[in-house]
Design a protein around this nucleic acid. Sequence first.
RNA 1: GCCGGGGUGGCCGAGUGGCCAAAGGCGGCAGACUCAAGAUCUGCUCUCGCAGGAGUUCCCAGGUUCAAAUCCUGGCCCCGGCACCA
Length: 963
Amino acid sequence: MELRRESFWQERWRSAGLARAEPRHDREKFYSVVAYPGTSGFLHVGHFRGLVYADSLNRFQRMLGKSVFFPTGTHASGLPAVTFAQKVRERDPLTIRQLEDNAVPKTEWPALEEPLAAARFLGRSYLELFGRLGILVDERAYVTTVDDDYQAFIGWQFRRLAARGALVQAPHFSSVCPVCGPVSVDASETDLSEGGDAEKITYRTVPFRLDDGRVLLAATLRPETVYGVTNLWLHPTEPLIVWHHKEVEYLVGGVAAPRLVEQHGGRLGNRVAPEGLFGRSVSVPLTGEKVPVVGSLLVDPRVGTGVVMSVPAHAPADWLAVAALSPELRARLPAIREIVSFPPLEELAASERELLGGTGSPAERALRATGAARLEDEEALEEATQRLYRLEFQRGRMTVHALEGLDVAPARDRVARELATAHAGLDLLEFSKRVVCRNGHEVVIRRVPDQWFVRYGDEEWKSKTRALLSRMSIFPAEYGRELPQVLDWYDDRPCTRRGRWLGTPFPADPSWVIEPIADSTFYPAYYVVRPFVASGKVPLSALSDAFFDRVFLGEGAGEPSLPRELQEEVRAAFTHWYPLDVNIGGKEHKRVHFPVFLYTHALLLPEALQPKALFVHWWVTGGGEKISKKQVSSKGGAIPPIRQAISEYGADALRLFYLTAASPGQDVEWETRVVEAARIRLADVERLVREMRSGGSGAAPELDAWLFSELHEVVRRSREAYAAYQFRDAAELAIGHVPSLVRRYLVRGGAPGPGLERASDLWVRLLSPIAPHLAEELGEGRFDSLVAAQPFPSTDELALDDRAKAAEAYLQQVEDDLQHVLGPSITRGDVPGEVIFYVAAGWKTEVEGWLRELTELRSGTVPVKEVMARAQAHPEVSAFRGEIPRYVQRVAPLLRSESPAPKVDEAHVLRSATGYLLRRFRFTQMSVYAENESEPHDPLGRRERSRPGRPAFYLVPGGAHKP
RNA sequence: GCCGGGGUGGCCGAGUGGCCAAAGGCGGCAGACUCAAGAUCUGCUCUCGCAGGAGUUCCCAGGUUCAAAUCCUGGCCCCGGCACCA
């Protein structure tokens, strides 16, 4: 099939209105969505996996006679389009390459420098690409999240959430570029040039008061160790800065000071040289003990507050630093105290035992185990620290009086709380690594005192969501097992941002913009409304809360400016398409989109309208990683742009690749040779179908009966596969299994004719959800409509003929055996001879039947006696008493792992296949005897070998035998 | 550490008690076709055997079973999430 024919068929589907969803109350419906793409740039081959799954499923459902609704939209909210536009403005090389790859004329570039325009443009380009892959989308429902009507919908949704108590305001720490505004720190790095994988770390601060009233503010991740502090460390030369906060003068490092101001307010004061502090005492919070301040190079001024608690018994670095102190200094420190104990050694794992072997403090023992002897042994010291900290947290128990008997983990929380109550409780948040925004500024963490949250942590709401989940089907099942746990840890989520984001203004305070995850939890509902708005039937001005209450909730009298019937029509459309049958998305949605989607539906809709299934698929990867834009290029990049891939391999080949390269719960590596192989498989299918129709006399009725029986099974299994979201199986049946059946039919002497004509028409329909373009091409002129509008094959169409199937299975077994014996000589074209078959005598069937019964009764032993007893009572079998014991000995062990031989007239099957067998194995002659026929030619005594379903045969050397 | 998923032939990847030496694809080998290459077609692709057989395999070690890639126990390793940590 020529690839340009694909666009021809796409046009035909369009003009036939195949994708247009009309509520049909006389039919079942099917409504699915794919998580809509964001607008960070052009789509690549990694984006289409879910869409192809969805389209195949939708096409299947359509062929079942259902009315199908498949809308899409574009998720333009947030920063991606802003960043994209900016990169266009800057003529960023990678972005320019994308524009060129996607054939965007230079004259249009200036328009894309504006974020909204860029978002809309990208969205249209997505829609166009969907079409090119043959994905049927109802474009009348297409919407972007920056459209006015969508924003009216989101406004309603948030007012509804607020009315149900689902929103709350609380302080929050969010990532901000001090110059450019809020940014999102995540792996996609849309807003960043560096540090997308950074995590937020929360240090607890611990105030140590000097006798002059100033406070040295230490930062720690292990506040419970305050009970083991012997001194404070400061960097020997780095100056400190005074931080004035609520009447207190804190002394902190120069890096931490501005961070603390971002997060807690206050103002900065003078610099203070550290020298003046060395040797002075500070008092330890909670214990009141006095400890000295000491200088040490172990302090990294960039981390924490630059004021470090020294806990030598439990921190290897502190132990080393204390050991290095002069004796005079050393003498001023209080005794080193151990504050944590461990379970007895025998209860620990080997690696833990090794760490804690020997004597001395835990820090000392860890140092010994790792071989770290000096602060400069960075690697070993790091290992000692990591392992000890982890072990203390997991297995340690507090021994200090105030916390005695508590495990370390709860002790840590308790001390943190006590410090917060007794003192200011000023946490310090820090990134785990440098984070830099797109424009090169370092990103900071800023306290936002009045952040809006969606209350996903609310227990009542959560349990409603759990209940919804328990009623749903989740594919693949592993994700279903994972989801309850995801809900367990789900907590309140910030839902608004301030800054130059695209999105809907937050209703209660329009200075906030609703953030991108939060505006995409209920959109399948809006798709139903959108066509009414797009067509002008419902004006933008009518999209009031009263309207949405009426349509989605069935509450209230509706929007007064709209005719009542119209609103009821929209309401009816909503209740027709809802509940959503399935939401399809990639694995990146497992912990973000899908949970909030469930939450929102659980809250807003009654049970009957809540979604029915989730389907999650893994990624298409390049080089083992999620495909990045950098890899995608028309000029020799590892991965071609989707446009190029389509024109090179064709939409159907790409679809087949997505459907068959791996099961959904598995990443699949993009490999052009595999896509190429898919293209070739399709070409084979096409050739074969054309051959099937080349006219001819057909085949023997038994062969047709066999083929139809096999196809009957194929149809049944296909339907089961789609129902279970096993797209790979469905595709493999249509593309792999059917051709092998047809080839067998042909090779068995079947010729094109009525049987194959019929089979081909069925096959074409089977292909339609998988390779829809090819199916149309092969179905052209053979149906009363487009193939995509034909009914999916039904098992009723073809009779299941067990006898025909059994006969063919028997013949294949015989062929396998012959093939095995003849081996590669056939390929080599060696001179074959004559073959003589000996079909097993009837008594063998009888005996095997008995054996099957008996072996079930007495496993393990060979029941010769029982068989003989039965044989005595059986006149026909008893005639062969002499042969039975040997036969039973040989066959009994085999039966356990064999299924019963098909019941067929073996001699008849072999004789009817004579021509075929002669041809296939190039025998010169072939004859068939019954084993107990009077005088078959059998010089080697082969006939004794025969078993039911496994005839014995004798390959006459050189074909010398003449009967 | 907790939870979830996994470890299969040269590679990718199906397979969850017996029709499994294990689908399909990729790669490799041989043959057909071709002036040739490519594409295509056919066969082979764990070891031994060359009369349809035998042996050894599905991370490792045990176990259950007449029968284990599949079930159980223990261990090692990998991935994801959470927790923890620097």
